[in-house]
């Protein structure tokens, strides 16, 4: 599926790239028209197809942009169809890298092995979800249990958790987002968020709503939390780079890229899925607001 950077230089000319690009465009159009994910694309050399989580997607996109600017002969296409679909694509051999904001499930592993695909996980970054409140809120911290009970509607007043006598305004990301997915699995577990919770469309909107609403509670990606809102200690741990990457902060998770087997050393694919280990990779991960796994400085 992929070729090492050194192989067959004759085919790496501009014409080849152009032809491949047009094939890619055709494939994309065809894909859009027939509306099914499983079209055999990504078979051309020097091309990496990435599919999966919307949370990891931004990292993959930035990595792709950076990598393509360094290697003009490589085409990397990144689509975001959700972790589950990323796994599906990898199993069916239609993508090279599956972005996933969760680990592969047992069933997915089984299906992969039956299809002759051996999934290998690469942890590209850590993701933490600070729970934030208005700066005027005297509360310093909550437990995961308390946060869950607030969002299920069992706790409705800040007084019940030692705060002022104010009705709690719950703010959640929209159900489309990976942020919501993380929160749902790590905090809510299997309980439903109360129907009167407010939903907003972006991490920035969470911050905007919380910083203007004294009674609000919300959650957002680590990169979006600044001093206009107050991040709470959860189970006594304050969310920052150190506590998230060490796993002491409880609402944190690794973000994965899965490949079929460990990529051939020196191949483009190998370089791509290890980009997060380089200094540039760390910078990109930090810029997007995730916690890198490396510590250059």
């Amino acid at each position: 599926m992929l070729r090492s950077p050194g192989g067959d230089p004759g085919m790496e000319g501009a014409g080849g790239v152009k032809a491949r690009l047009s094939v890619l465009v055709l494939a994309a159009v065809g894909l859009a028209l027939c509306g099914h994910g499983a079209v055999a694309y990504g078979q051309a050399a020097g091309k990496i197809v990435v599919d999966g989580s919307t949370t990891v997607g931004p990292i993959a996109k930035q990595f792709a942009e950076y990598y393509m600017s360094k290697h003009k002969d490589v085409v990397i296409s990144v689509s975001e169809s959700g972790s589950g679909n990323g796994a599906k694509s990898l199993i069916n051999g239609v993508c090279d890298v599956a972005d996933m904001s969760r680990f592969m499930k047992e069933g997915e592993f089984k299906a992969a092995v039956e299809n002759g695909v051996m999934p290998v996980a690469h942890v590209v970054a850590m993701d933490g979800l600070p729970v934030v409140v208005h700066p005027s809120n005297p509360i310093k911290g909550l437990t995961v249990e308390q946060v869950r009970r607030i969002y299920t509607g069992q706790i409705t007043n800040w007084r019940e958790v030692g705060g002022p006598n104010l009705k709690i305004v719950k703010i959640s990301r929209d159900t489309n987002s990976g942020t919501y997915e993380t929160f749902e699995t790590m905090v809510m577990q299997s309980e439903r968020i109360a129907a009167d919770a407010e939903y907003v469309g972006s991490n920035g909107a969470v911050r905007q709503s919380v910083q203007t609403t004294p009674a609000a509670i919300g959650y957002a990606g680590l990169g979006f939390v600044d001093d206009t809102v107050k991040a709470l200690e959860i189970n006594g741990i304050y969310p920052d780079r150190a506590t998230v990457s060490s796993g002491r902060y409880p609402i944190a998770r690794p973000l994965f890229m899965f490949t079929n087997g460990y990529p051939k050393l020196g191949s483009h694919l190998h370089a791509f899925v290890t980009l997060h280990l380089t200094e540039q990779g760390q910078e990109i991960v930090e810029d997007i607001g995730f916690v890198p796994v490396t510590n250059y400085r």
Binding site: G82, S177, E198
Partner: peptide, 20 residues
Amino acid sequence: PVRTLTATIAGDMGEADHVT
């Protein structure tokens, strides 16, 4: 707070493609 039909369509369109 309330939710309208239009906002639901706009907000949920992103994830709700043919595949998922």
